[in-house]
Amino acid sequence: MTTPATDSGGIVGCILAGGLSRRMGGSDKSLMMLGPRTLAAHVAARLSPQVDLLILNANGDKDRFAPLGLLVIPDGIPGHLGPLAGVLAALEFTRAHVPGARAVITSPADTPFIPEDLVARLVTGAGESGHIAYAASKVGPHPVCALWPLDLAEPLRAYLSDGGRKVLDFVRDQGEIAVPFEPATLAGQEIDPFVNINRPEDLGALEPFFANLTESDAGTPTGSPVIGVAGWKNSGKTTLVARLVAEIAGRGLRVATVKHAHHSFDIDHEGTDSWRHREAGASEVALVSSRRLAIQTELRGDPEPSLDAVLARLGPADVVIVEGYKGEAIPKIEIRRREAASHDPLAPADPLVAAIVADHPVNDAAGLPVFAIDAVPAIADFILDHVGVHVAAS
Rank of each mutant, 00 (worst) to 15 (best):
I11K: 02
P348M: 01
P193N: 02
T214R: 14
I330M: 13
T238N: 08
H262A: 09
V226T: 03
T222D: 13
I55P: 00
D173W: 11
L68F: 06
A347H: 13
G60L: 10
H131K: 15
I197C: 05
H269V: 10
G60C: 10
D7V: 08
F194W: 05
P316S: 11
R291F: 15
H263W: 00
D173R: 15
D173F: 10
I77C: 01
L53Y: 14
R157D: 13
V319E: 03
I132H: 02
G388T: 10
A44I: 05
S107H: 11
E298S: 00
L314D: 06
V98H: 08
G271N: 07
E247D: 12
R337Q: 06
A40D: 04
T220L: 14
V387K: 02
R64I: 14
L253K: 07
F382M: 06
G130F: 10
G125T: 05
A66G: 03
A153D: 12
L213G: 03
Q296G: 13
A103D: 03
A393G: 14
H262T: 04
K138E: 15
A294S: 15
V43H: 01
A205G: 11
S8H: 12
S27Y: 12
G327N: 14
G25V: 08
P67M: 00
A153W: 09
P155C: 07
G388F: 06
A44K: 04
P78Y: 10
P183V: 04
K29Q: 14
Y134C: 06
L34N: 00
A103R: 13
E339I: 10
A135P: 08
P108I: 02
A366F: 13
G140A: 04
L70I: 00
D302V: 09
T2P: 14
Y325C: 10
H262N: 11
V389Q: 08
G315C: 07
P351L: 00
N212W: 12
V353R: 03
G69Y: 02
P149F: 06
E328I: 12
A153S: 14
A282C: 13
T297W: 11
L203D: 05
M1Q: 11
A126L: 05
I177F: 00
P305D: 02
G140N: 11
G127V: 07
L203N: 03
A40I: 06
D268T: 05
G26Q: 09
L384C: 04
D192E: 04
A393F: 13
L68C: 03
L299D: 01
A45F: 07
D63M: 12
L346V: 09
A393I: 13
E154F: 11
I177H: 03
N363F: 13
